[in-house]
Simulated assay, not measured.
Amino acid sequence: MNRLVLWNIDLTLVDVTIVARDAYAEAFRQVTGRPLVKLAPALGRPDSEIIFETLAINGVDAQDDHLPRFIEALGAGFAARRDRLATQGRMMPGAADALAGVARLRGVVQSVLTGTIKGNAVHKLAAFGLSRHIDFEVGGYGEEVYPKATLLQVAQSRAKAKYGRAFDQSSTVLIGDSTRDVQAARIGGAAMIAVASGRSTDAELRAAGADLVLPDLANPSEVVAAVARLTGDPTGRLAG
């Protein structure tokens, strides 16, 4: 393997906002004994950060055990709702074909760099048949309390340990929809394909420094060509 492609999940590959909010509400109630009034916005942030802000804006003083208890409850609540993901959520246009197309490039490993905790990341992608091209072992997840740029480097290190090859900015591509994703790529050491399918605009993604901004993933061949070019293989050679 000589190139690593890391995907953001929410609003890049899938949108399961309704189910996620329900799981958050149940986890909040279990941990605090109170109903959730306001959920902190995601904005490309990890679940760990969203949890702490959600506690704060609902007037709950965070305790040492709140984060691990909340993460455990969030995972259980989400798993209990996994059958609702495909009916109450949606796969983003072109996501399946983009993942399949990138998988056909020679020497590529695909994983995720997501604010979602690992178990929920698996459920989100599996619900839409998107998990078969993803190596979840080498990804970066929302229960890991690192800035996203550091988490990108953690994913690169995991990929190196598994595949025996160092991954750097010349061989790593991050695909995501938020300015935070772009900032993580710039700081952490990856090329960046931004898709304006989330809450960040085309102009904001370009200003943040994305190498390429697409409206969405609806043209998978464009995504594949961009990954090939950004990893030094403009011909886009396919695996045999």
Rank of each mutant, 00 (worst) to 15 (best):
I9N: 03
V14A: 02
D15F: 10
D15N: 11
V16R: 06
T17K: 15
I18A: 14
I18G: 14
A20F: 09
R21P: 03
R21L: 07
A23D: 00
A27T: 00
A27H: 02
F28G: 06
R29W: 02
R29S: 11
R34C: 03
P35K: 08
L36Y: 10
V37E: 10
K38C: 11
K38A: 14
A40F: 08
A42N: 01
A42V: 03
G44H: 07
R45Q: 10
P46K: 07
D47I: 08
D47T: 12
S48H: 11
I50E: 00
F52N: 15
L55D: 08
L55E: 02
G59I: 11
D61K: 15
D64V: 15
D65L: 13
D65W: 07
L67M: 13
P68K: 12
R69D: 06
R69V: 07
F70G: 10
I71G: 06
E72G: 12
E72M: 14
A73L: 06
G75T: 03
R81A: 00
R81M: 08
R82Q: 04
L85E: 05
A86S: 02
R90H: 11
R90F: 09
R90L: 08
L99T: 01
R104Q: 15
L105S: 06
L105G: 02
G107D: 11
Q110H: 05
K118N: 07
G119K: 14
G119W: 14
N120K: 07
V122K: 05
V122Q: 11
H123D: 13
K124W: 03
K124Q: 00
A126R: 04
F128H: 09
H133W: 15
E137Y: 07
E144V: 12
V145P: 08
V145W: 09
P147E: 04
P147F: 08
T150R: 13
L151M: 07
Q153F: 01
V154G: 09
Q156V: 05
A161N: 13
R165F: 14
D168Q: 10
D168R: 08
Q169E: 13
V173N: 08
S178I: 00
G189E: 01
I193N: 00
I193E: 04
V195W: 03
S197M: 03
R199L: 15
R199N: 15
R199W: 12
S200L: 04
D202T: 15
A208H: 03
A208Q: 04
A208W: 01
D216V: 05
N219K: 14
N219D: 12
E222P: 11
V223A: 03
A225P: 00
A225Q: 05
A226Y: 10
V227F: 01
V227D: 06
V227A: 05
D233Q: 13
T235A: 14
G236Q: 09
G236V: 08
R237F: 14
L238S: 04
A239R: 15
G240I: 08
